[in-house]
Design a protein around this nucleic acid. Structure first.
Lengths: 145, 145
DNA sequence: AGGCATAATGATACGAGGTCTCGATAGTAG
DNA sequence: CTACTATCGAGACCTCGTATCATTATGCCT
């Protein structure tokens, strides 16, 4: 069900680089391809391991760049470790399966309104929030009763 | 407004230790006191600095212990750094002020129900969630318009 | 095409935050 | 009081991420 590749990622990345006076380098494309090749979420270190010819600092720099451009979003796992995954642009949250690790997007969250009401009671002005949801995906539920 | 001390923390801690075959050591009490003395949230390093006579590893060990016992809860700041604070036992979230750093509790969250409904649509069984809310507290709003 | 200014790279040092090891110390049951 | 063993403290170590800086290569200009 998850798309195997993200060919649009490469194209959008190149277009976005050109628009913002950043160079389209071979290394950048390598990093982007390594990410696109991989389904689901990943850590920066995993990309480093997958691209031993690319410097660690460079991998981190480019992941940061991709995240700032909105092509990647950050996923906080239950153990506190930070992962990334190709992003559906726009605000969303993640349903993280604690068994298989799959992180599917939870779109159309109407939490902000709820929060504004609740927090408003104590005079707090909400400007943002971070939400991760943990549980079992459909497949893992049927596997492990 | 925030309680200046948490005397019950010490007593509960001692009781809980005795109940679970853990020793009541002078060092443990020092760490608990240093935490109780401090209002608001703090990092492990801050406690280390406040207790130079106690080993760093020991401070970390005991904070972890207190957190596992439910006496402390973890607060994730917007910059990704992890803080702790004395916990209102039970499920709650935090309203973290991005100006002054104050983290007040957001009790009575009915997010779990909302999430179950939303996530249920995709066959996902929610078991837990992590939510932090960022914004400005009442005081900081009046100071900085 | 050829040259140039400079953005990007990679090796490496550094730093924060946290865990592991292991000999020494000190609670606690008896 | 004594023995058993959980806990401690010092420091090595680990992970993740950033800063430095000499070197490379991109993109523009002609």
């Amino acid at each position: 069900m998850p798309a195997a590749t993200h060919p649009p990622l490469l194209d959008s990345f190149i277009a976005h680089l050109a628009e913002s006076d950043q160079r389209v380098t071979a290394t950048r494309l390598q990093v982007a391809k390594a990410i696109a090749r991989r389904g689901g979420h990943f850590t920066a270190e995993e990309i480093c391991a997958a691209l031993p010819s690319v410097g660690r600092a460079t991998v981190y720099r480019n992941i940061k760049l991709l995240a700032e451009m909105g092509f990647l979003c950050r996923v906080l796992l239950e153990d506190g470790s930070l992962h990334y995954q190709v992003s559906h642009r726009g605000h969303h949250h993640h349903l993280v399966c604690t068994a298989c690790g799959l992180a599917q997007d939870l779109l159309g969250c109407d939490i902000q309104d709820l929060l504004r009401t609740r927090a408003g009671d104590s005079g707090f002005a909400v400007s943002g929030h971070w939400l991760e949801v943990y549980g079992l995906c459909r497949d893992c539920q049927s596997k492990a009763p």
